[in-house]
Amino acid sequence: MKKTASRQADVAKAAGVSQSTVSMVMNGTADLGRISAGTQRRVMDAARRLQYAPAGQRRAVARATPHLLGVHTFEPIFPTSSRDYYFEFLRGIEEQAAAEGCNLVLFTAAPDESGVRRIFADDTNGLRQAAGSLLLGHHADREDLARLAYEGYPFVYVGHREVPGASISYVGGDYRTATGEIVDDLVALGHRTFAYLGEQSRDEPQEDRWTGFAGALERFALPVPEPVFSAPSGLTTGWLDQALAAGTTAILVESVNLLRVLAAMLNLRGLSVPGDLSVVLLVDDETEVGSLPWATLRVPRNAMGRRAVRLLTSLLTEPNGDYERQILLPCEHTLEGTVGPSPR
């Protein structure tokens, strides 16, 4: 007897969720519905056990061969443990590629003099063996992105990136809104004077965070501080002393490396967190800094990877379709650990 194919309802029952939840998880849009990472994992596990084939995978079966999707990184990012920052991006890509019935291939290249792995070498597109590619990395080469767009090669950047003169497809986190919501919560706790520590290298994700921060303060008619965009080695206790003298009660920090320096300076000055000062890290990196569980903005890394695959397969199967090609997913945050009421 021919085995009956598993249905969406079967996956929903096995995972203990609704069919709409299964649909959103399998389509890579679960974070838009605020579906927790644990629930998403439960749905994916149930789908694997039941060998459930969603619509995307059924389309792939109908093709002569599955799409071969490339994964290119502009700098070394592949994780050595599940705690690495890029682990969930890559796991999300792998999960959604399996759901879509696609194969994956990793592309790498020797770095140029600036340390960036270029896509075009000897005037040749190094990704051409794949039907389309997913691109990752902090330091993208804008010329490569512009050329890919000009040549019509299908690709999706995992992260918010803009290229002058070209419209590229991307899936990123809505850091602007999330940072604004963090400021809202801090103001509700009585904080009125803030400081901001940002990375020296400025790309769209960093600028989105700063814009969300400054915009929220302007909404409350609170003073917007002069930001410090610095390498960790450029920070001094003199900056901290000036911030404290100005009445600062909360500091937002863009990176773990900057947080390490700030934590050391606070310890040197004998200041407690959050007793004397509240601190929020604007990225959820599991790297340990001291003994505190730091208040953080949570990046939807797994969902970004999965949604990027979904978008790429849409570009390949429906290149002229009516759907969003520049997507920012909502981010959550927690203020537990290093945020408290304003001490002033």
Results as ranks from 00 to 15, higher is better:
residue 101 G to H: 02
residue 334 T to A: 06
residue 197 L to G: 09
residue 5 A to C: 09
residue 151 E to Y: 01
residue 299 V to K: 10
residue 247 G to Y: 11
residue 252 L to G: 05
residue 156 V to Y: 05
residue 170 Y to K: 01
residue 264 A to T: 13
residue 65 T to S: 15
residue 276 D to K: 01
residue 5 A to Y: 05
residue 171 V to P: 14
residue 47 A to V: 06
residue 170 Y to P: 00
residue 195 A to I: 01
residue 21 T to Q: 05
residue 178 A to E: 10
residue 341 P to Y: 12
residue 164 P to N: 08
residue 127 L to Y: 05
residue 184 D to S: 13
residue 272 S to R: 11
residue 278 S to C: 00
residue 250 A to M: 08
residue 181 E to W: 15
residue 84 D to P: 08
residue 199 E to T: 10
residue 29 T to M: 09
residue 277 L to V: 11
residue 309 V to C: 00
residue 27 N to E: 08
residue 113 E to H: 03
residue 40 Q to Y: 03
residue 145 L to K: 06
residue 281 L to A: 07
residue 226 E to L: 01
residue 164 P to W: 04
residue 31 D to M: 09
residue 22 V to K: 04
residue 9 A to M: 11
residue 77 I to A: 10
residue 167 S to V: 05
residue 151 E to M: 00
residue 99 A to N: 05
residue 166 A to W: 13
residue 124 T to C: 15
residue 82 S to N: 10
residue 137 G to I: 04
residue 155 F to K: 04
residue 154 P to D: 05
residue 219 R to S: 09
residue 90 L to G: 15
residue 307 R to S: 08
residue 166 A to Q: 10
residue 83 R to K: 15
residue 248 T to R: 00
residue 80 T to E: 11
residue 233 S to Q: 14
residue 336 E to H: 10
residue 141 D to L: 02
residue 205 P to T: 14
residue 19 Q to D: 08
residue 263 A to P: 04
residue 61 V to G: 12
residue 276 D to R: 09
residue 140 A to M: 12
residue 141 D to K: 00
residue 18 S to L: 02
residue 193 T to C: 12
residue 317 T to A: 09
residue 105 V to S: 07
residue 23 S to M: 04
residue 130 A to T: 02
residue 285 D to W: 01
residue 228 V to I: 11
residue 169 S to K: 02
residue 319 P to N: 05
residue 221 A to S: 11
residue 336 E to G: 10
residue 118 R to C: 14
residue 202 R to F: 02
residue 40 Q to F: 06
residue 136 L to E: 04
residue 1 M to G: 14
residue 321 G to S: 04
residue 175 Y to D: 15
residue 12 A to R: 06
residue 240 L to Q: 00
residue 210 W to F: 06
residue 324 E to N: 04
residue 114 S to A: 07
residue 88 E to D: 02
residue 168 I to G: 02
residue 10 D to E: 08
residue 167 S to C: 07
residue 153 Y to G: 02
residue 11 V to L: 08
residue 270 G to Q: 09
residue 128 R to L: 08
residue 275 G to P: 14
residue 19 Q to W: 00
